[in-house]
């Protein structure tokens, strides 16, 4: 009798803890902006105060896979002007002057903006089991309590998501008068990258671009020449 009560208590406690642990495995709802990542890197030997004038070419270059074209994802040009405006505005805020006639007067730095996108696939599956109802199956970082009687068989489904990256590349033209592409090596002195998930609504994408591109400059205070 005593042993029986003990066992019942033990089992009840185990069930409680099991449910507790499985249902509370730590996760939060994730928004698009949560997954945005801003990375910057610079040449530490460069004193940016030596620079004054800049230009930003008016086209965003799309980087594509030329070996296997099926990997390519069409990138919208809907946000191009916003991205270019943000880069220009941040440069002006840091004290640079836009060179209005770059063919006559080569600027000190050129900022090229490019973009790329990649589609990623993930396969999820669960397996037949005889443990009955409410068996947790693994989905991403969440445990879900399956309502399936799992012994009906396992299953598989596929999801995909598209990631995009914007790369702003600052090139040092100060040493060069007119560049001869075949002969000259032009050094990159700063790179700002913004990486995130594509597919959010227009208003959210617009706001994410504002935040992330400004952040790239914000975390690169050495660019400030004022």
């Amino acid at each position: 009798m005593e042993k029986k009560i003990q066992l019942t208590v033990v089992l009840a406690f185990m069930a409680f803890t099991g449910v507790f642990l499985a249902s509370c495995y730590p996760t939060d709802d994730v928004s698009y902006s949560d997954l945005d990542l801003v990375g910057t890197i610079h040449d530490e030997s460069i004193d940016f105060k030596n620079f004054k004038t800049y230009v930003v070419p008016d086209t965003i270059v799309h980087m594509i896979d030329t070996v296997d074209e099926s990997n390519n994802v069409d990138i919208s040009r809907q946000y191009d002007q916003q991205i270019l405006n943000l880069v220009n505005q941040n440069m002006v805020d840091y004290g640079y002057v836009k060179e209005v006639n770059p063919t006559e007067n080569p600027p000190d730095v050129v900022l090229t903006v490019s973009a790329m996108a990649t589609e990623n696939y993930q396969v999820w599956s669960w397996y037949p089991s005889y443990w009955g109802w409410y068996w947790p199956y693994y989905k991403g970082t969440n445990y879900w309590w399956g309502y399936y009687p799992p012994y009906w068989g396992g299953g598989t489904y596929v999801t995909s998501y598209t990631t995009g990256t914007i790369i702003v590349n600052m090139l040092d033209l100060k040493e060069h008068g007119n560049i001869i592409p075949e002969n000259d090596t032009v050094n990159t002195v700063w790179i700002g990258t913004v990486n995130g998930l594509l597919g959010s609504s227009i208003s959210i994408t617009t706001s994410r671009l504002n935040t992330t591109i400004n952040q790239a400059f914000e975390q690169s205070q050495y660019l400030d020449i004022k």
Binding site: L21, Y25, P26, D28, D34, L35, D36, L37, V38, G39, T40, I41, H42, D43, E44, Q215, Q219, S220
Partner: peptide, 28 residues
């Protein structure tokens, strides 16, 4: 035993030499 630690840090900035990263961190 089994102990799970977790923390989410919104928009953390981390640096290593000349590289700086900014983003939300999930730590486990």
């Amino acid at each position: 035993g089994w102990n799970v630690f977790y923390e989410k840090i919104d928009k953390a900035t981390i640096s290593s030499e000349n590289l700086t990263l900014n983003g939300t961190q999930w730590k486990y």
